[in-house]
Every structure is written in structure tokens, then in C-alpha cells.
Design a protein around this nucleic acid. Structure first.
Lengths: 165, 165
DNA sequence: AGATTTACGTCAGCCTTGTTGACTTTCCAA
DNA sequence: TTGGAAAGTCAACAAGGCTGACGTAAATCT
């Protein structure tokens, strides 16, 4: 688009610019997780619990293997977290009707409440950042992030995007 | 820019849009760390080592407390990582001349080589994402990320940015 | 019908990387 | 000269990743 002749217009691809992007990702991700982390701490939960809650909220009835694929962890790792969430009454696990081997996961009311509390905190920061940067910047933000994903994750992301729109 | 009348133009601030942004951050961060992680694995190092190498490369001669502030971990945690990096000959620690309590940290040649290997991998993905999204998107990307940081981290980030430019 | 595969759960053990708390050494500065 | 800052270290602990092995129920293939 803005590719002019001899290499001008490509200044945004210099190592220096890329390094800044890398550092921006690092520092921003810390901010991104800071607010929910503070809430989780008081509940003896961690980021892993938050992620599970988020995606179960987002795709109610999702199966365990589905969740494994999205989160990219082993079932042993997920199970530890899921176990506590179920025991604490935040998540309900339901035997599949079509395929009884599968477990479908749902948030209970208590789970929905917690999820909302966590995501309210996270969204508040996101909203402030979006508002400060403006709609055009947000579009660019999303474009770059999407391009940065592994293809598999991009597909998972787009599937969620569609279902949610 | 696109702010039309009664609340239109604020559609990018809906909970749905914010949720997509949150998911984009999650999936993108995974991609962001995937390539260096693969290299680190073969060296029995972890992400913490990479972060230390990155910031020592970026700010040669930085002190331990400086690094602690930037990385946001305890000195015990950093020390474990720093210890192995020094023992393996990637990092050199030098007593301060002005203030002999301080240790100034530098990468050795070996350390520079490793840092370059890691950051080449990470930059390659970043470059591909930048190229795919274009310069305008990149600007938006950086704006949103910067707005998302905690103020302290934003300052640290900007100090690095200046020194590096 | 029987064999195989899939989905899930669980036990055990390991690693990295974060934490707190306590203590020491060195050294600057008031 | 003394108080406090910078750094290093020991010990113990927790979260949350991992692998490997094993068991069970249910679906699917032969």
C-alpha cells in the first residue's frame, strides 16, 4: 500500500521498530492481566482458572477436549483447575447426550458471577485503552494481533469471533 | 474521526468488541512467545532467561535493581536466572566504579549470540505480522498497547524507547 | 460380537518460575 | 561512625506447566 520505491515506507519494519513492538507486547500483557490477577489472588485462584472460566462462558457447553485445544495445555493440567472450579460450584459438567463420553461444561450462576467480576475488571482497562487510542488504532491493533497468531489459534479465534458476533 | 451523532462510532467499545480484543491478546501472546520458547527448550532455559537477556542487551550496563524494576519480579527470582546465565558465560557482572555496591550487567559475546538468535526468531514473526497488517495498523497496535500498560511500565517502556531510537 | 479407538479422569513425579522471610556482606552518605 | 541501600544467598513453598502410566465408559470399526 505505502510501499514507495527504494525501501522508504518500510521503516516500520526495522529491527528497532520490531524491538519496540516486542517490548510493547511484554509490558502491555502485564497490564492486561494485572486487574483480574488481583481479584483471583483473594480467591486462591490463578490465571489458569480465569482462562477456563472465560472460555466456558464464551462457549457454553463446550467439551473438555475442545477446551484443551483452545487453552493449549495438557488434560492433566486443565483437570487440576477444572476440578477445583467444579468442586467450588463455579462450573457444571454434564454428560453428553449424543456422545456420552464427552463432558459439556457450563458456568453455574456462581461461576457466571465470578466470570463477570473478572472480565469487568479486564474490560475496564481494555475500554480505557481503546477509548484513549480511538477506533482506527483499535482496528490496527486487532489486525496485528491476528497476524501474530499461529494459524491454528487464528482459526480458533475466528470461530469464537463469529459465534460471539 | 468516525464519531457520528448519538453514540454511533462508539460501537468499538461494546463488551463484545472488548472481549474480542481480550481473546486476541491471549492468542497473540502465545504466538509471540512460541518461537523463542522452542529455542530455549533445547538449551534448558526458560522465558525468564530470555527476558533477562533481552533487557540486558537493550540496556547494557544496567544494574540489578534496574532490571528488577523492569521485570517486576523479586530479586530471589531474578537471581536464580541471572546465576545460571553468568555461570554459563552469557552474562558478565561488573562491580560499579562510582557505586561499588551496584553490579552492572553486560552480555558476553556468547550472550549476544544467543540473544540475537532468540530475538531473530521473535522478530521474524513480528515482522511478518507487521508486514501483513501494514504501517497504519502497526501504529494503532502500538498506541493501544501503550494505553494498556500500567503507568509505571509505560514510563519504563518510554525510557527504553528513547534510549533505543 | 469382539476388538479398537476415543474421551475423560486420575495418580505420581518432575520442572520452571514466581513468592515470602531471614540473614550477610559491602559500601555510600549523612 | 552509623544507618540504610544494593546485592547475594539459603530455605521453604505454591501455581501451573509437563510426561508417563493406567483405568473406565462409550462409540465405532471389522
Amino acid at each position: 500500500m505505502a510501499e514507495t520505491s527504494g525501501g522508504e515506507g518500510l521503516l516500520y519494519l526495522t529491527d528497532e521498530q520490531l524491538r519496540k513492538g516486542i517490548e510493547a507486547m511484554f509490558f502491555a500483557y502485564r497490564g492486561f492481566t494485572a486487574d483480574p490477577d488481583r481479584i483471583l489472588e483473594t480467591l486462591e485462584y490463578g490465571r489458569a482458572h480465569h482462562r477456563a472460566l472465560h472460555f466456558i462462558h464464551r462457549a457454553p457447553g463446550t467439551t473438555v477436549s475442545n477446551l484443551l485445544a483452545i487453552l493449549g495445555v495438557t488434560k492433566q493440567s486443565l483437570n487440576r483447575v477444572l476440578r477445583t472450579l467444579i468442586d467450588d460450584g463455579h462450573v457444571r459438567s454434564e454428560k453428553g447426550r449424543k456422545d456420552a463420553r464427552e463432558r459439556h461444561l457450563f458456568l453455574t450462576e456462581k461461576g457466571e458471577t465470578l466470570e463477570r467480576q473478572l472480565s469487568d475488571a479486564q474490560r475496564a482497562r481494555m475500554r480505557a485503552a481503546y477509548r484513549a487510542a480511538g477506533p482506527a488504532a483499535v482496528q490496527g491493533f486487532r489486525q496485528v494481533l491476528e497476524a501474530m497468531m499461529d494459524p491454528d489459534m487464528r482459526h480458533a479465534y475466528n470461530r469464537l469471533k463469529e459465534s460471539g458476533a
